[in-house]
Amino acid sequence: MSIGHTLLALLESGPRHGYDLKRAFDERFGHDRPLHYGQVYSTMSRLLKNGLVEVDGIEQGGGPDRKRYAITDAGVTDVGHWLAQPEKPEPYLQSTLYTKVVLALMTGRDAGTLLDVQRSEHLRLMRELTQRKRTGDLADQLICDHALFHLEADLRWLELTAARLGALAKEVTR
């Protein structure tokens, strides 16, 4: 999961302090693993260096933690690319996909398309596996079937999420 893209997307709704960013991240995506502040700091400095964010202002009292970051146009474009890019289908993908869906909803992008694109990517892989299964021996078939069933489970999750986008959007933009 790309923390940089996540923090960048969180900035799209408005400039924030590094500490605010960590709190927003933890609130939405850090259920099992809260972000270290150092992680935020190093990520932000990388983004700053790449020109995806800029320092909006420094608050009274000094110190690195008092910097307020804002997203640049290049940063917005980068978030857009990231969200539109389907993830490589693999097991335990849902946390990344979930993050992406939520961020898409928060930033007003089309989360449905995101899911459809991901579904296509899954299906593409499933087609490949199915093709391999048709030509392969029994061992191939069993291995492919294992992957296929997992991919199918992901796909079902994608469909379920797609069906609940409305409810999720309400919760996210609350």
Binding site: H122, L123, M126, R127, T130, E152, R156
Partner: peptide, 11 residues
């Protein structure tokens, strides 16, 4: 069903 759809060329 995704596994059935996987027999297609395109969806």
């Amino acid at each position: 069903e995704a596994r059935v759809a996987a027999y297609s060329d395109r969806e």
